[in-house]
Measured scan of single mutants.
Amino acid sequence: MAAGGDHGSPDSYRSPLASRYASPEMCFVFSDRYKFRTWRQLWLWLAEAEQTLGLPITDEQIQEMKSNLENIDFKMAAEEEKRLRHDVMAHVHTFGHCCPKAAGIIHLGATSCYVGDNTDLIILRNALDLLLPKLARVISRLADFAKERASLPTLGFTHFQPAQLTTVGKRCCLWIQDLCMDLQNLKRVRDDLRFRGVKGTTGTQASFLQLFEGDDHKVEQLDKMVTEKAGFKRAFIITGQTYTRKVDIEVLSVLASLGASVHKICTDIRLLANLKEMEEPFEKQQIGSSAMPYKRNPMRSERCCSLARHLMTLVMDPLQTASVQWFERTLDDSANRRICLAEAFLTADTILNTLQNISEGLVVYPKVIERRIRQELPFMATENIIMAMVKAGGSRQDCHEKIRVLSQQAASVVKQEGGDNDLIERIQVDAYFSPIHSQLDHLLDPSSFTGRASQQVQRFLEEEVYPLLKPYESVMKVKAELCL
C-alpha cells in the first residue's frame, strides 16, 4: 500500500493539533497551500530580480507567473513527485505547466533550498508574528487579574506546605514575570531571523556568478533584492546548502521555554482548584465526569500541561538535527523538520489560546482563602504575639514557653481530632496574655502579614508589564474561544 493518505478522510490519521486544537490561522501558515504558494512567490521574486539585473526574462513571463501564483494543481504535483521522487522539481514542473512561456526560467540558477529553506524562514517569521500578540493578550488578562487582587491576602506555599502570606495578585505576578520573559525572547528570536537568500547549491553562489558572467556586484544585488522582497532586513552571508540548523534550535528553545512557563502556571491553577481557592472557567453544560456528576475538573489547565510537556520535548529534535548536518548538509534534517517545526508552533498556539481562555474567566473564592488563612495564621502570628507581650512588660522566655504549650495543644486538636485551630481562643482565655487581649485582632490582621506584596504588584505592572504590552494595544480586544 502506498504511503500517505487522504487526510480529510475519517479513515486516515490526522494530527489532533490540526484537527482538534490549533487555530485556523496557525494551521494555514503550515498548510501545503501556504507552503507551495510561497515557493511560487519566491520563484517570481527571483525572476523579477534577475530581470532587473539584466537576464533575458520578459515582462510577459513575469506576468504569467504572477497570474498563476494561486493556480496550484495539487493532484498534478503529487503525481509528479511520485514520478520524480523530488518535491521541488515536482512543483517546478507543475508551475511550468500553467506558465508555459515562463517554464524555462522558473528556478533559474537556484537549488531546492532556495524555495525550501527560504519558505521555512518566512513561515517561522509569520508563525512567530501570530504567537506574539496571543502571548501579549494572556499577559494582559493576567495583569488585569493581578491588579484587581493585588491586596487580597492568601496563604503562600513553599514545598506545598503553608508559608508566609502573600497576595493573590502577587502570586499571579510570578506567572506574568515568566511570560514577559517569554514574550521578550519570542520577539528577540523573531527579529534575529535572517533570510537564507540566493546562495546556490553549497552556499557559494557559483551558479549565479556564472549567470551574471562573473559580476560579483550583481550577485550581491540579486541576494539583497530577493531578501528585501521577502520582507527581511538581512540575509546570511555564510550558508551551506541550507541555512544553519542552529536557527531551528533557537526558535524551538524559546517555544519550549514558553511551554515550561505555561505548565507551571496551569499546575498552580490545578492545585488551587483542589484547594477550592480558584477555578478555571466551567461552562453551564460542561460535564466533569461521566460517573461523578459533582466533579469540576480543571480540564483546560490539564490540557495545557499535557501539550506543554510535548512542546518542551520537541527542542531535542533540532538539537540532534543540527549535530548531524555533515559538511554542507545531509538530508537527516528533512523529514524531522517537516514534523517538529509545525508541531512546535501548533502546540504553542494551542496552549496560548487555551491559557487566554482560562485567564479571561478565572474565578476566585475569597471566603475559602480566608478560612485557610484562619487555619494557619495563628501559628504564624506567634512571633508577633511574643513581641507584643514583651512590649507590655512580659518575659520573652516565659511567653515563648506559654505559646509553645498552647500551640501544641491547638495542633493536637487540628491533627488528632480534625478540629479547627483554636490557638487564639486559648490565648484569649489565658490570664497571662490579658495585657494584649485587646491587640489580638490587630495582630491577626492578614494584611499585616503580606509585606509589600501589593506595592510590588503595582510597581511591576507599571514599570515592566504595561510598557512591554504597549506595541500590542491594537490587538488586545480579541477574545479566545474554545470549541473543545
Rank of each mutant, 00 (worst) to 15 (best):
Y114R: 01
D317R: 02
D268Q: 05
D87H: 02
E383M: 02
P133M: 13
A163V: 01
Q164D: 00
Y294K: 03
F212H: 02
Q61K: 06
Q221V: 12
C180N: 10
A78Y: 11
L179F: 15
E70W: 10
F208P: 03
H86R: 00
L319F: 07
E70R: 13
R309N: 09
Q320G: 10
V92H: 00
S359F: 14
R303G: 01
E328V: 02
K391P: 01
F212T: 05
D59Y: 10
K170W: 01
L42R: 02
L352A: 10
A3V: 12
F145C: 08
V457A: 06
A291C: 04
M76L: 12
R137W: 05
K66E: 10
H107T: 02
V168N: 05
E277G: 03
S474H: 15
G96C: 06
E250F: 07
N353Y: 04
L131Q: 11
G451H: 05
A77E: 07
S434C: 06
H93I: 12
K264A: 07
K295S: 04
N336S: 14
L165V: 09
I123R: 03
F195H: 04
S301D: 06
E48L: 04
V457T: 12
T167A: 03
N353S: 13
A256L: 05
H437A: 10
V138T: 09
I287W: 02
K187V: 09
V88Y: 00
A411P: 03
V457I: 15
L193K: 05
N336R: 03
K35W: 01
N384K: 07
C180L: 12
C483L: 09
L352K: 06
C305F: 00
V138A: 13
L258C: 09
A381G: 07
C27V: 15
M26Q: 03
T347L: 12
F157Q: 00
N297V: 05
R137G: 15
A127K: 07
R125S: 09
R171S: 00
L124D: 09
K147S: 11
V413F: 09
T321R: 03
V219E: 00
A3C: 14
P56D: 13
L128T: 13
G418A: 03
E280D: 10
A18W: 09
L55K: 12
M292P: 03
A78V: 11
T350V: 15
T166L: 11
D144G: 15
R404C: 11
Q325G: 12
R196I: 03
R125G: 11
N185S: 14
D6W: 10
D349W: 05
N274M: 12
D430F: 03
L124M: 09
M225Q: 11
C266M: 15
L469A: 08
L44G: 08
E464P: 02
C305K: 09
R245D: 01
